[in-house]
Design a binder for these strands. Structure first.
Length: 661
RNA sequence: GGCGGCGUAGCUCAGUUGGCGAGAGCAUUCGGUUCAUACCCGAAGAGUCAGCGGUUCAAAUCCGUUCGCCGCUACCA
């Protein structure tokens, strides 16, 4: 017996600091469709997803919630698994970085890399500014002092482990250049090469002593393994790498594709491959960075409410409609706009009108003309052959497209067949045939071909829409026969046995009242944040995010407020800071005094339009040097979720220097 | 500032290595049909293929340039 070909596909492991949203669902649904497709086409599939559960952020949130980190993530993970169940995600394994097996292997990997000299202990040496609690590199210092507060800094050393990324960079560059399919889509490849690899990599700090919630470094107490080695290695620890039971690793590795959001392509195409090189293992065949679902909004005409909770959509429209929309609407590599209107329109035109109605009319005609029994095929005519030819050709096309992860195109191809089948009804006009007795065989042939086309369609859509095929098959009366559901069965047209009794059911996709739906969706769903939400997939917290974490809003007292010295300041001059896209240098009149403030608003305001405006200045902010320019305070601006800025000004003319109370 | 990408019918987008009169889906209008979920089928609609300038017998497709949008990155509240 020949071994089946294997196919290993992964999603990122998600960071369970909060509930998941449509972006995570998007990645996971896509991976699921692919996994199902490969199973259908007779691959031995390994589909992995999971959660990345360590790190400071979770440690902190758990503490705030008064539970242990493990208790906290257990709760969230249960919710995630529930969500995947709702979306019918057919993963083969769900890995958690808190699994003991995972932790043990990560420790082995860390040790191995250490023993072979790829991880080394060093000092994180930097200039430390005690008041700011910040490290600075030599270059960042301004005139030998803290660039933030301009005070003295001291040279401090802190122990950390580092991974020798630099050692492998040339090999990786070569690899990427020689393997065109490795980073997809292609534009991502250039970004990695040009922005990171060619300029040169720095060694990566892979341990922390500042928090405890992580996998301990076995040979050095106090150090925990930081996200990179912990999280990325899930793709092989899940297969039993470095254990006695590594059969899965030997069978499935290298992965065929790591599906990731475009925001984490970097980690998967630089750090991860280098880890694998250091371990002497093969690299994954492909890292595919898909785009984001951008929520509609911002357009001036109407700002519509946005729906992003997949559970709500699933409840309202059914899982298959949601999955269909996600996979059909947006070309997988690029960003796409998610709008309620597009969703409802897709459901109506593609699912209700084309597919659902095709099933309805077919079954209704078999009912009416043949008392619900599928008739036998008689002689074929030209139209029949045309339809059959397309039906037989479509699976091959779908397979080709799926191999390139072109879900949307694959679905379009299937819908081409659905359209052709609808057209076939018009061409053959069964209601006319039904009028004469001698046309009976012909009528039977037509209806048979319709039923068989629907069977083929139901197999074709099954990876994308796990529920609908069952319903189609049931209405066709063939649910008992599994041989009619296989990919292989698509190579022949004429599999459905004649004489089967159909059973007409409800429309599988009821038509929606667009206007009503939009109103409904808009009213009960708050607008949620968009792209930003899709970022925190994998513990790949950026510095920016870490800063955000520190900025949690909590209650303050009036005394706290009093610490701020807010003043009205009039702009007397403004100019763009050279070599900077965002910075404007403002001269402000604050009472008697003149101040210079550098502000990151150049993308929202031109220098000219600012002059003469009265703004609100935080006057007692520590002075900072930005891009070589002294900034004495900052001006206030409102910022919406898209990052659009609007400067704060005064309602009436008032003397500059007036204080805000 | 550096690197990369994009700008094609009202909307969303296809357009291989340059070549018969520029396409699909949705929406719109008209016609057909009645088996069906007011559905399906057909037809129509000219969009300076962002602008300009080149290369070529021939460019949406190659080169240069301008404008607009976006991504990554640097600098940065």
């Amino acid at each position: 017996m020949k071994d089946k070909k294997t196919f290993y596909i992964t999603t990122p492991i998600y960071y369970p600091s909060d509930k998941l949203h449509i972006g995570h669902s998007y990645t996971t649904v896509a991976a699921d469709a692919m996994a199902r497709f490969k199973r259908l086409t007779d691959y031995d599939v390994m589909f992995l997803t999971g959660t990345d559960e360590h790190g400071q952020k979770i440690e902190r949130i758990a503490k705030e919630n008064g539970v242990t980190p493990k208790e906290y993530v257990d709760r969230i993970v249960a919710g995630i698994k529930e969500l995947w169940k709702t979306l019918d995600i057919s993963y083969d394994h769900f890995i958690r970085t808190t699994d003991p097996e995972h932790q043990e292997i990560v420790q082995k990997i860390f040790k191995k890399l250490y023993d072979q000299g790829d991880i080394y202990k060093s000092e994180y040496e930097g200039w430390y500014c005690t008041p700011c609690e910040s490290f600075w590199t030599e270059i960042q210092l301004s005139e030998g002092k803290c660039p933030d507060c301009h005070r003295e800094v001291e040279l401090v050393k802190e122990e950390s482990y580092f991974f020798k990324m630099s050692k492998y960079q040339d090999r990786l560059i070569k690899y990427i250049e020689e393997h065109d399919e490795f980073i997809q889509p292609n534009s991502r490849k250039n970004e990695m090469l040009n922005n990171f690899l060619r300029p040169g990599l720095e060694d990566l700090c892979v341990s922390r002593t500042s928090f405890k919630w992580g996998i301990p470094v076995t040979f050095d107490e106090g150090h925990v393994i930081y996200v990179w080695i912990d999280a990325l290695s899930n793709y092989i620890t899940a297969l039993g790498y470095l254990t006695d039971d590594d059969g899965k690793f030997r069978k499935y590795w290298p992965a065929d594709v790591h599906l990731v959001g475009k925001e984490i392509v970097r980690f998967h195409t630089i750090i991860w491959p280098i880890m694998l090189m250091a371990l002497g293992e093969e690299l994954p065949r492909q890292v595919f960075g898909h785009g984001w679902l951008i929520l509609e909004g911002g357009k001036m005409s109407k700002s519509k409410g946005n729906v992003v909770d997949p559970v709500i959509l699933e409840k309202r429209y059914g899982l298959d409609a949601l999955r269909y929309f996600l996979l059909r609407e947006v070309p997988f590599g690029s960003d796409g706009v998610f709008s309620n209107e597009a969703l409802v329109n897709r459901i109506n035109s593609d699912l209700a009108n084309d597919l659902g109605n095709l099933l309805s009319r077919t079954v209704a005609m078999i009912d009416r003309y043949f008392d619900g029994v599928i008739p036998a095929q008689a002689e074929l005519e030209e139209v029949d052959r045309d339809l059959i030819q397309l039906a037989l050709k479509t699976p091959r096309k779908v397979e080709e497209l799926m191999d390139e992860l072109l879900f949307s195109n694959a679905l379009a191809e299937i819908w081409r067949l659905i359209s052709r089948t609808n057209k076939y009804i018009d061409e053959t006009m069964p209601w006319v045939l039904a009028k004469s007795e001698e046309q009976r065989p012909r009528l039977g042939t037509v209806l048979y071909n319709l039923a068989e086309s629907l069977r083929i369609i139901s197999v074709l859509i099954s990876p994308f829409m796990p529920g609908t095929p069952k319903e189609i098959i049931k209405q066709l009366g063939i649910e008992g026969d599994d041989t009619l559901k296989t990919w292989k069965s698509l190579s022949d047209f004429g599999k459905i046995p004649a004489g089967i009794r159909v059973s007409k059911g409800e429309p599988i996709f009821p038509r929606l009242d667009v206007k009503k739906e939009l109103e409904e969706l808009e009213k009960n769903l708050p607008t949620q944040a968009k792209a930003e939400d899709q970022k925190d997939d994998k513990g790949q917290k950026t510095d920016e995010e870490k800063k955000e974490e520190a900025e949690e809003v909590s209650e303050i007292t009036i005394d706290d407020f009093a610490k701020l010295d807010l003043r009205v300041a009039r702009v007397i001059a403004a100019e763009k800071v050279e070599k900077s896209d965002r910075l404007l240098k403002l001269q402000l009149q604050v009472g008697e005094e003149t101040r210079q403030v550098v502000s990151g608003i150049a993308e929202h305001y031109s220098a000219e339009e600012l002059v003469g405006k009265d703004l609100i200045l935080v006057a007692n902010l520590k002075p900072v040097k930005l891009r070589g320019n002294l900034s004495q305070g900052m001006i206030l601006a409102a910022s919406d979720k898209d990052g659009k800025l609007s400067l704060v000004t005064t309602d009436r003319q008032i003397e500059s220097g007036s204080s805000i109370t």
